[in-house]
Computed example of a mutant assay.
Amino acid sequence: MTELWNWRIDQVRPAEVWPALAEALGRVVMPLAVANPARLPRYAVVCDIWQAPGEFATVVDCYGVPDTLAELPSIATLARLLDRNCVLRDDTLDETRHLLVAPDGTIRPVHFDVREADDGEVLSGQRLCTEATPGCRGWSRCQRSRWAPDSVLPALAAA
């Protein structure tokens, strides 16, 4: 178990996320607050789900995810089950750039305005990562990503 996943979901209460997350992962999902590492079933995933300010305000952290689970199909399944858009960080190390995962399973790069607050990171001002945006062309980090500006891919093909 080596993976740590951090996702955000658009307009959903944490209570709705727990059962959908368990179904999406095909695992028992244990809340971080009550998980006892000495008594965890081998197939369990420890998660923390909370509300933050801004867009995509429901935050999901999954700890110790088995490397046999693939992140992109898992988040695509969660987006479908909740019928909500989800976001996760992309591969550019640009704090403003994320991948938007739609309920239909498509993935596209987007940017947000990001600021730190007492309750954590606040995302606002969602916009597509596109060649029409000066900051996304040329020698930008966006061009070095496997998720090129203007790309739209199905989650299973992207895994």
Rank of each mutant, 00 (worst) to 15 (best):
T2A: 14
T2Q: 13
T2C: 09
E3W: 08
E3H: 12
L4F: 11
W5C: 04
W5I: 01
W5E: 01
W5S: 04
W5K: 08
W5A: 05
R8P: 06
Q11S: 15
V12Y: 02
P14F: 03
A15T: 13
E16M: 12
E16F: 09
V17T: 14
W18K: 08
A22Y: 08
A22N: 11
A24K: 10
A24W: 06
G26M: 04
V28K: 13
M30Y: 04
V34A: 07
A35S: 14
A35W: 07
N36T: 11
R39V: 00
P41W: 03
R42P: 02
V45L: 06
C47W: 01
C47Q: 08
C47N: 10
D48Q: 14
I49N: 10
I49D: 04
I49S: 09
I49A: 07
Q51S: 10
Q51T: 13
E55K: 05
E55N: 05
T58V: 03
T58H: 06
T58P: 02
V60Y: 10
V60R: 11
D61G: 12
D61I: 11
Y63E: 10
G64K: 09
V65D: 06
P66D: 12
P66W: 05
D67G: 06
E71S: 11
L72C: 00
L72T: 04
L72G: 00
P73H: 04
S74V: 01
A76R: 01
R80V: 00
L81C: 08
L82F: 07
L82Y: 09
D83T: 06
R84Q: 13
R84S: 08
R84Y: 05
N85R: 15
N85I: 04
L88Q: 14
L88F: 02
D90W: 08
T92R: 05
T92S: 15
D94R: 02
D94Y: 04
T96A: 15
T96S: 15
T96V: 05
R97E: 09
L99F: 01
V101E: 01
P103M: 00
D104H: 06
G105V: 00
R108D: 05
P109R: 03
V110H: 04
V110I: 15
H111Y: 13
V114P: 01
R115S: 07
R115C: 00
R115T: 04
E116G: 00
A117Y: 01
A117K: 01
D118L: 09
D119C: 02
D119A: 13
G120C: 12
G120Q: 07
E121V: 15
E121L: 14
L123Y: 12
L123A: 10
S124Q: 14
S124P: 11
L128C: 09
E131I: 02
A132Y: 00
T133D: 15
P134S: 03
C136P: 02
G138F: 08
W139R: 15
W139G: 14
S140G: 12
S140Q: 03
C142M: 06
Q143N: 12
Q143W: 05
R144L: 10
R144F: 10
R144V: 02
R146T: 10
A148H: 14
A148F: 07
A148P: 03
P149E: 03
P149S: 05
P149A: 05
P149H: 03
P149F: 02
D150I: 07
V152K: 04
A155Q: 01
L156E: 11
A157H: 11
A157L: 14
A159H: 09
